[in-house]
Design a protein around this nucleic acid. Structure first.
Length: 302
DNA sequence: ATCCAGGAGTCCG
DNA sequence: CGGACTCATGGA
């Protein structure tokens, strides 16, 4: 991780193949998003560092990522954690050349990697958030999923108001472990979604699911099995979480409806492709299925 | 009104 | 193991 500390702000030197603007386009895809804001070309994000809410203002300065701390003077630890957070959020450890190399000769991918070059797989570093967001999105349209998330965040998350704008933090699992099914049903969660999410909050509170433990397993299949053993987590959710939270570039949520729609459009099909057809199409994506999927999702947002 | 949505669990043979 | 059924409700 390459960053410079100027005490009141920091600058991160991104790796090759990084374009902040492309990442901001993806982050700005939904009007309903309340876990970050984009204004005047700057990205605002609230994070928590040792019980303290820290607002980040992220922008570009001469090909560097500059992070300012508009709401309060940052401690050294806050500056370090901010750099670490951004490095993970934007997946800056990844070397994308092999992906672009593969994609350049791929019938489906070559056009979109050219168009969105520099886009990184925007992650969800917090495991509880990744799991919860995936479960919220199961089998309902995305607009409604965002509505549910907004209610959930604004009911159980912490917030900071600065210069007239309110910034939200995703709820912590400890705060949700004590919820009843009825509490979440009041937000229009289905019984199933409420059960799954409270169950996961309880598993995490008791230490039975931890991101570090999953990452230590290393092996793709072991981690996927550990995840799908959780009630409410099927193959799609496990791959989604491995892709967005655990940084597995080979994770592949092959049953994803958004992926199907993107492939249908890219290929000019009358219908969505079948799973068997997708397996054939993705034959050469080996090792980069997550990035291929992510770029295809991006293609759905104009 | 009708169909679909960034699925998962359960049951049945 | 593979397929059908159930959940559950907003959006287009």
């Amino acid at each position: 991780m390459n960053w410079n500390d100027y005490h009141s702000y920091i600058e991160i030197t991104p790796p090759q193949d990084f374009t902040l603007q492309e990442c901001l386009v993806f982050l700005g895809r939904s009007e309903h998003e309340n876990l970050h804001q984009i204004r005047d070309g700057y990205l605002y994000k609230l994070i928590k560092i040792k019980d303290e809410l820290v607002l980040l203002k992220i922008g570009e300065a001469a090909n560097l990522i500059r992070v300012e701390f508009p709401a309060s003077a940052p401690t050294l630890e806050a500056r370090r954690k901010a750099a670490t957070y951004l490095w993970e959020w934007f997946d800056l450890s990844q070397e994308l050349e092999p992906f672009y190399e593969m994609a350049s000769s791929n019938m489906i991918l070559h056009k979109i990697v050219d168009e969105y070059r520099g886009l990184r797989l925007i992650g969800i570093p917090d495991l509880f958030e990744a799991l919860t967001w995936a479960i919220l999105g199961q089998q309902i349209n995305l607009a409604f999923a965002y509505t549910l998330k907004k209610r959930f965040v604004e009911e159980y998350g912490e917030s900071l108001t600065f210069e007239g704008s309110t910034y939200w933090l995703f709820p912590e699992y400890k705060a949700i472990a004590n919820c009843s099914i009825g509490d979440l049903k009041m937000l229009q969660f289905s019984t199933r979604k409420a059960e799954y999410i409270i169950g996961i909050a309880q598993l995490m509170t008791s230490g039975k699911i931890r991101k570090e433990d999953l990452l230590h397993l290393k092996d793709y299949q072991q981690i996927k099995q550990s995840l799908t053993a959780i009630r409410g987590v099927g193959a799609w959710t496990a791959d989604y979480v491995m892709m967005k939270c655990l940084h597995f570039t080979s994770a592949f949520p092959i049953a994803d409806v958004g992926l199907h729609n993107a492939l249908k459009i890219q290929l000019g099909l009358e219908r969505k492709p079948t799973l068997e057809e997708i397996e054939v199409l993705a034959k050469n994506w080996e090792g980069w299925q997550a990035y291929a999927t992510f770029y295809l999702w991006r293609s759905l947002y104009g």
